[in-house]
Write a protein that binds this DNA or RNA. Structure first.
Length: 834
DNA sequence: ATAGGGTTAG
């Protein structure tokens, strides 16, 4: 096909005379002196002067000359009116054009029905966006021609009536007008916008037939059309077949690749362009930067920025945004900030970009401050700003901010935007209001796949697997086919609800339906298996993932490492450690943390320490992992020393740090040290302890027999105590003189969770430990009364042991048979589900 | 005829 273009003529003479913007357009243009002949040809002189003024955007002076001609009895002809209208087209000056239109009408039918003027009027109104007037004039034209058809098709194209534009394109041909190389680009643009590849190919055929192939405008439009329709091979054929390419042809090719995710190719074309010494325009650089940003190609993007600087391009809002976007996407936030400050005219997009850059690196407060700054610059928030603000609210669980954002959306009719709707649903879900999320979801009329997936994710993340599945089927009933993200949420729902068999079942179901698991699917399954104790299976799945060609990333590696928990899985852990080194992931914080954890759990404290010593900066998560490792190995002294190191390095500890240090102290019985840490946490680090921290302290105290203090601590906490913390203290009651405490704790526990059979067992055990058999029977009766059954995992064995030694009176350890016999005395069958 | 921003899953 490409060879056909070689026989075509050059089309430069078809180019419209563009207005020449003079450098000093305010300078008046005087009547052109036609060397002596002026006096003899005043009309000719006026025509040239008016024409010149019109081309320089000085319509008003041109109109003044028209009036002057009138007063000198030199009636202007159609060509002068045509020039004037063309001048108004250049300036998009609707009102002046309408004045000229009035003059035309005043001059009578000879002018008003002149084909040239009529056509010019249609073109003028079409270019000035006066859709109704242009359409009206066009429909009343006695004589239509390619120019008026082109004008009307161009107009429909510009205002997005693409089908109508193509209908016009067909109609003009049916009426015997051969489209010229000015209409064809518009027709192609409409094809691109509608993704009508077939129609576009038809136009391409026409182009080849009538020989427009050599026109750069047409060829560029073909490239653009094919690019928009995703037919990059065809775009490339046209591109390769061009004898002469201008910068727009190059740009269309780059943009085509970039917008279809073929970023490497886009970068390749940009480089070819440089090799052929074609100067890149702002558009070239901007698209190149987008491609670099999409690939995270730091070196290329920086080069693009440098080229823009060398070429002397000012950072206008679009080019500036592209540079800003690049730095933001590759995580160079400081550079993004510098660029932002240098962008000359910041618009909503620019502001939105810097806001989302902040959000991306977790700087929520900075993002919100920037929103305030944006408002003080008198810019209004749009849907993009709002989705960022809602994301900020979601990520910080700030439901107050989220509700304010939601209200803003309603007041400004932004909530119908699908992206905003998804952000609102996600925000409520992440703020723990899944009910609100459901309401917003239901009231959104245009549900797209992301919105469905947002609610699916909401149910899944809290383990509501039933709701997730219901929604999953509902979306299919409403003809929204689930994608891999939807399947991932269904699997996550099962995983979070400990339904590993169902998770695996859906994992194979999706594959049999032709949906390929991605990295997230695999990681969900691996994490689920690891968390639920199926460590070997998790390791197997990690292996399968690699065999299926999915490359692990830091998250999947960390999950898999968490499945290596004992000496037998150490070999797997070491293998993965090797993989991280070979693939240059070893220096990543999450990987180092997981490795320290893995080695500690597999019994290799020294290896854990080696990984820890290999880190290059003071990263808190790795310190936390190392402190936990020492805690696990009973080396509380080392854990404490590491904590003090952290303080010396001025790294602010977080909640996890304190939990680890406190549990280290608990394991080693270092009560005073633990208490000291707790005091430091509040007074030195201004940290408000969480429920979990109080839990650690309660364990610390109760383990060393300071049960009353532990109980007083529970009562003085700024939190409502939960069943777990009460239960943990109850489990420590072992002596006769603790019966009063057991009574209080039992009362508390049964109020909190009257239907949890585990609590009854724990209370029975505590009474049994104190030898209070009457109370044990009472609790058992109470349990029967409530119709509660012992759940698997709860054990009566403690009661049996205690009872036996109580009966035997010698404190010897009883055999299983003996315990069983003793339990029978209490009417309990140990084998019922033990 | 060509260029920039926001949403979901580990």
């Amino acid at each position: 096909m490409a060879s056909l273009f070689f026989t075509t003529p050059q089309f430069s003479h078809f180019r419209p005379a563009k207005p020449i913007k003079s450098l000093n357009s305010n300078e008046p243009i005087h009547l052109i002196q036609l060397s002596g002949s002026t006096a003899n040809h005043p009309y000719k002189s006026y025509f040239h002067t008016i024409s010149s003024l019109c081309k320089h955007g000085q319509i008003q002076q041109a109109v003044d000359l028209l009036t002057e001609m009138d007063s000198r009895n030199l009636p202007a002809g159609p060509e002068i009116y045509g020039e004037l209208l063309q001048g108004c087209v250049y300036e998009r000056d609707l009102s002046t054009g309408q004045q000229i239109h009035a003059q035309v009408l005043k001059n009578g039918a000879f002018f008003a029905r002149n084909e040239y003027i009529e056509t010019k009027l249609v073109i003028f109104y079409a270019k000035c966006g006066a859709f109704d007037i242009a359409n009206d004039l066009f429909s009343r034209l006695r004589v239509k021609n390619v120019f008026s058809w082109a004008a009307i098709i161009g107009l429909k194209c510009r205002i997005g009536l693409n089908e109508e534009a193509l209908m016009g394109f067909s109609e003009m041909q049916e009426n015997g007008f051969l489209p010229d190389n000015f209409v064809v680009p518009n027709a192609l643009k409409a094809c691109g916008a509608l993704l009508w590849l077939g129609y576009g190919k038809g136009v391409h055929g026409f182009v080849v037939k009538v020989g427009f192939g050599g026109c750069v405008f047409v060829a560029s439009s073909l490239i653009d059309m094919y690019g928009k329709c995703g037919a990059l091979e065809d775009a490339r054929k046209v591109f390769d077949g061009m004898l002469e390419r201008n910068v727009i042809a190059w740009n269309s090719m780059i943009v085509g690749y970039m917008q279809n995710g073929m970023n490497e190719q886009a970068i390749g074309v940009f480089h070819d362009m440089r090799v052929e010494a074609v100067e890149p325009s702002q558009v070239s650089i901007s698209s190149f930067l987008s491609a670099s940003a999409n690939l995270g190609a730091i070196r290329e993007g920086k080069q693009g920025h440098a080229i823009a600087v060398v070429r002397g391009f000012e950072l206008d809002s679009i080019l500036g945004s592209s540079v800003l976007n690049f730095y933001s996407k590759v995580g160079l936030i400081e550079d993004a900030e510098l660029v932002f400050d240098r962008i000359l005219e910041k618009d909503v997009v620019t502001w939105n970009l810097i806001i989302s850059s902040y959000l991306q690196c977790g700087l929520i407060d900075k993002a919100l401050n920037t929103c305030h700054l944006m408002r003080s610059e008198n810019l209004r928030f749009d849907c993009v700003t709002l989705s960022s603000i809602l994301t900020a609210a979601a990520n910080s669980s700030n439901i107050k901010l989220g509700k304010e954002g939601h209200c803003y959306c309603i007041r400004n009719s932004l909530q119908s935007d699908v992206v905003v709707a998804s952000s609102i649903v996600d925000m409520y879900a992440k703020c723990g209001r899944i009910d609100y999320a459901g309401h917003v979801f239901c009231s959104t009329t245009n549900k797209d796949i992301v919105l469905w997936n947002t609610l699916l994710a909401a149910y899944a993340s809290v383990g509501h697997s039933g709701e997730t599945l219901k929604l999953f089927y509902q979306m299919q009933l409403e003809s929204v086919p689930p994608n891999v993200t939807s399947w991932n949420s269904v699997i996550l729902g099962f995983v979070r609800n400990c339904q590993l068999n169902e998770a695996k079942e859906f994992f194979s179901q999706m594959q049999s339906l032709g949906v390929h698991p991605n990295l997230i699917t695999w990681t969900t399954l691996i994490t689920g298996l690891a968390h639920n104790g199926f460590h070997d299976e998790a390791l197997k799945v990690f292996q399968e993932m690699q065999e299926s060609g999915v490359k692990p990333n830091t998250i999947s590696i960390s999950s898999t490492l968490s499945a290596c928990t004992n000496a037998t899985s150490l070999q797997h852990g070491r293998a993965i450690h090797g993989y991280t080194i070979r693939h240059d992931l070893g220096s990543r914080i999450s990987v180092s943390t997981a490795l320290v954890d893995m080695y500690a759990k597999c019994g290799c404290l020294s290896q854990a320490k080696m990984v820890f010593d290999g880190i290059t900066s003071n990263e808190l998560p790795v310190y936390n992992a190392m402190i936990s490792a020492y805690a696990l190995h009973g080396q509380a002294g080392e854990a404490l020393a590491m904590f003090r190191n952290l303080e010396e390095a001025s790294v602010e500890p977080d909640g996890i740090t304190f939990t680890s240090v406190l549990s280290a102290c608990t394991h080693s019985g270092l009560v005073n040290e633990g208490l000291e840490i707790f005091v430091d946490m509040v007074s030195k680090h201004h940290f408000s302890p969480s429920m979990e921290h109080y839990g650690c302290l309660v364990s610390l105290l109760s383990r060393s027999g300071r049960l009353d203090e532990a109980f007083r601590l529970i009562l003085s906490m700024p939190y409502e105590p939960d069943a777990q913390i009460i239960g943990s203290l109850l489990a420590k009651c072992r002596e006769h003189d603790e019966v009063e405490l057991v009574e209080q704790l039992s009362k508390y526990l049964l109020e909190l969770e009257p239907d949890n059979s585990g609590n009854y067992v724990a209370i029975s055990n505590a009474y049994a430990a104190a030898g209070r058999w009457k109370e044990v029977s009472e609790i058992r009766d109470l349990m029967k009364e409530k119709g509660l059954k012992k759940s698997p995992g709860c054990s009566w064995i403690q009661i049996g042991e205690k009872l036996h030694s109580f009966i035997a009176g010698d404190g010897s350890h009883p055999s299983t048979e003996e315990i069983q016999a003793t339990l029978a005395l209490l009417g309990t069958d140990m084998n019922s589900s033990a």
